[in-house]
């Protein structure tokens, strides 16, 4: 039986054209997207026309001219994160966004060191490597597959030994979406509609992928 992850989080990455300076904690609070108190207590790393980085207790935001990133590693806020993104880009609906990644990250504990090794051996059999390297070990494995739906994009799964959980396995799933015809689309409505309709499916699928990997291993 697969244990619950010790750390589980989600993040959303958009590729498009952004004006980083808009995205300040005070702006989010003024739009009612976060609490006023959170905005007051935000840790602001930098606010500059080309980069904005700040964190709340539960949220990490990083925006550059071509990339928007928001993430949380706390499960009570996974849905809140989605609401924040939807709210932000429903308001800023003229922002051009062409690609989206709904990314799942988890650190699963294994029952023992042997069980932890078993995962590595199963996903990356060593028969071949034992003839090539001395004491080979899995460092990182990324597999990519086609999307199971009609959207353009892919799903990539990365597995590594965890650096956060002793004898743990880190699994990242990059659920990547692209617009089929980005040139014909202005603004971000298409991507945001996709986020709203696909979020629950994406989260459930990513959790299932992670559990299936560990069950198979």
């Amino acid at each position: 039986m697969v244990k619950k992850p010790e750390i589980e989080g989600m993040n959303i990455v958009f590729r498009g054209d952004f004006n980083p300076k808009i995205f300040q904690p005070a702006w989010f609070a003024a739009q009612g997207l976060i609490r006023n108190e959170e905005a007051d207590e935000a840790t602001v790393e930098i606010i500059h026309p080309t980069i904005v980085v700040f964190t709340l207790d539960w949220l990490q935001i990083q925006i550059e001219p071509n990339r928007f990133y928001a993430g949380t590693n706390q499960s009570p806020y996974i849905e809140i994160l989605k609401d924040l993104i939807l709210g932000t880009f429903r308001i800023l609906n003229h922002t051009p966004i062409k690609m989206m990644g709904i990314n799942y990250n988890s650190h699963f504990p294994m029952d023992s060191e042997d069980a932890w090794h078993d995962v590595g051996h199963r996903v990356a059999p060593k028969d071949m490597w034992n003839k090539i390297l001395k004491k080979p070990g899995l460092r990182s494995l990324t597999m990519q597959g086609e999307r199971p739906d009609d959207h353009k994009g892919h799903i990539a799964v990365r597995i590594e030994p965890s650096n956060r959980v002793r004898h743990g396995i880190f699994i990242n799933i990059n659920d990547h979406y692209e617009l089929k015809d980005p040139e014909s689309v202005l603004g971000c409505e298409a991507i945001i509609d996709m986020l709203e309709s696909e979020w629950k499916t994406s989260v459930t699928r990513s959790q299932r992928i992670a559990i299936t990997i560990l069950e198979q291993a």
Binding site: G9, N105, N163, R164, R166, F170, N172
Partner: peptide, 17 residues
């Protein structure tokens, strides 16, 4: 270092390497 949880390191939980 692998298999050595590094709580103090300045690495995000949302990443691993």
């Amino acid at each position: 270092d692998y298999n050595k949880p590094d709580w103090a390191s300045e690495m995000s939980d949302l990443e691993n390497t």
